[in-house]
């Protein structure tokens, strides 16, 4: 997903940059007779239409939806300056895992990182609130929990671990 985001972003950045480069190169060309107002209107309507499609597609299923079905595994995670307290050492593959994220002091941000170092999901830990986030793990292995909101001089030390295990192992 992250790689796709990077490629799409670079593509859009490239298009915008190319438009500027073309305009700079055409600065000593003869004046154009093109109707730029009509072109601008088309650009605005195209951007609005594109935006509407992307908005509906990206929000159709709510990204922060949290299931309440009986197979949900709940994990309580609490941030402290500067460590995480997590009430489960392992969670199963393939089942919805809901993280209830608390903080005991300042704002933290919980980030779940897979064994390859890829961030899978995150949410903030806000004083006085419980932010809930769901994730279905696809691969087993040792996952890291990191802090993604600056919380003081030990911010980078807030690294914990938990295991994602296959369902058979959990049953045993």
């Amino acid at each position: 997903m992250q790689l796709t985001v990077l490629v799409v972003t670079l593509l859009f950045m490239g298009i915008i940059a190319a438009y500027f480069i073309a305009a700079v190169q055409a600065s000593d060309a003869p004046q154009s007779e093109i109707n730029f107002d009509a072109r601008r209107s088309r650009l605005i309507w195209s951007l609005l239409a594109f935006g509407a499609v992307v908005t509906v597609a990206s929000l159709w299923s709510w990204p922060h939806a949290v299931r309440t079905t009986s197979d949900v595994v709940t994990v309580n995670a609490t941030g402290y300056q500067w460590y995480w307290e997590i009430d489960k050492e392992s969670v199963p593959v393939g089942k919805p895992v809901v993280f209830n994220v608390h903080t005991a002091d300042v704002t933290h941000g919980i980030g779940i990182v897979d064994p390859n170092g890829r961030l899978l999901v995150q949410t903030q830990a806000m004083p006085g609130y419980v932010n809930r986030v769901e994730h279905v793990f696809e691969t087993a292995g040792l996952h890291k929990v990191i802090c993604l909101e600056f919380c003081g001089i030990g911010h980078h030390d807030m690294v914990s671990e938990f295991n994602v295990v296959s369902k058979q192992v959990v049953r045993r």
């Binding site: 972003t9 859009f12 950045m13 992307v54 929000l59 990204p63 941000g109 995150q122």
Partner: peptide, 22 residues
Amino acid sequence: SVGSAPAIIDGMISVNKLMHNT
């Protein structure tokens, strides 16, 4: 203008879940 592309894309909730505070 070019910088608006990564900003807007990170402004999507589903992308932000993976990119926020990276």
